[in-house]
């Protein structure tokens, strides 16, 4: 598969005036490589975590095969997504990083109001940027979870090269990272698949575009900026 993420000016690619580009090809590729690898890693990892899940490993040829898959996919999980920050058009990856580490007052207001919305009611919060407060927290869990699960995983993989005192700590760190990311993933999937108000966002991660209506109502600050950039270009 050719990795062509060169989108010089995404705004020019807009064909439908009722749609706005939310995620470039590169961003979507990173998201889906991360997501698919995460689920494969979660499945194969659960086989080692607990005897409850061990019988399910017969589906991939047994626990030893599952352990091999776990290591192989771990490399994809780390290397492919890591590379996306440097090849193609990594600008949006870095913008995402910068954005999620800039947790504003508006984000906090979103997060405190969001539980109501989560359960189907209406939450009131100020206009949100490209990533709202909840998305930033999900991103932070993903970032820190991925970093810690990678570091602890490397220590576990190459255990003989590290002192036992460090390897012993890698186990709880690996599990804790997995638990945080799994809990976040459950919420994330609910919002994109089963939450009627947030569900339109899914299109942005599939074909890149969301409706202007959705953009205006959920990410007004971002939408206004994109419109400004378009008008000024």
């Amino acid at each position: 598969m050719a990795i062509n993420t060169q989108i010089k000016n995404p705004a020019q690619k807009q064909i439908d005036p009722n749609k706005v580009l939310r995620f470039t090809k590169g961003e979507r590729l990173s998201h889906w490589v991360h997501a698919i690898a995460f689920f494969v890693l979660l499945f194969t990892g659960l086989g080692v975590l607990s005897t409850f899940f061990q019988p399910a490993m017969l589906g991939v040829g047994g626990i030893q095969v599952a352990r091999l898959i776990h290591r192989g996919v771990a490399v994809v999980f780390v290397v492919v997504v890591g590379l996306m920050f440097f090849v193609g058009n990594p600008r949006y990856h870095w913008e995402w990083l910068k954005s999620v580490f800039n947790f504003t007052r508006a984000d906090l207001q979103h997060v405190t109001a969001f539980p109501k919305e989560f359960f189907g009611a209406h939450g009131t919060y100020p206009p949100q940027d490209k990533y709202n407060g909840g998305e930033k927290i999900n991103s932070l869990i993903t970032i820190f979870g991925s970093v810690f699960i990678t570091l602890s995983g490397m220590v576990m993989w190459f255990a003989t090269s590290f002192p036992p005192g460090l390897v012993r700590w890698a186990y709880p760190v690996h599990d804790l990272s997995m638990i945080m990311m799994t809990a976040a993933t459950i919420g994330h999937m609910y919002l994109c698949l089963l939450h009627p108000d947030s569900n339109p966002a899914l299109a942005g991660m599939i074909n890149g575009y969301v409706s202007t209506k959705f953009a205006r109502s959920h990410h007004a600050k971002w939408y206004d900026r994109v419109k400004d950039e378009q008008n000024n270009s």
Binding site: K213, R216, S217
Partner: peptide
């Protein structure tokens, strides 16, 4: 919310 999600997903202006 599932019934009306088609038409009122944009009513939710913040």
């Amino acid at each position: 919310n599932y019934r009306s999600s088609e038409d009122d997903s944009n009513n939710h202006a913040n």
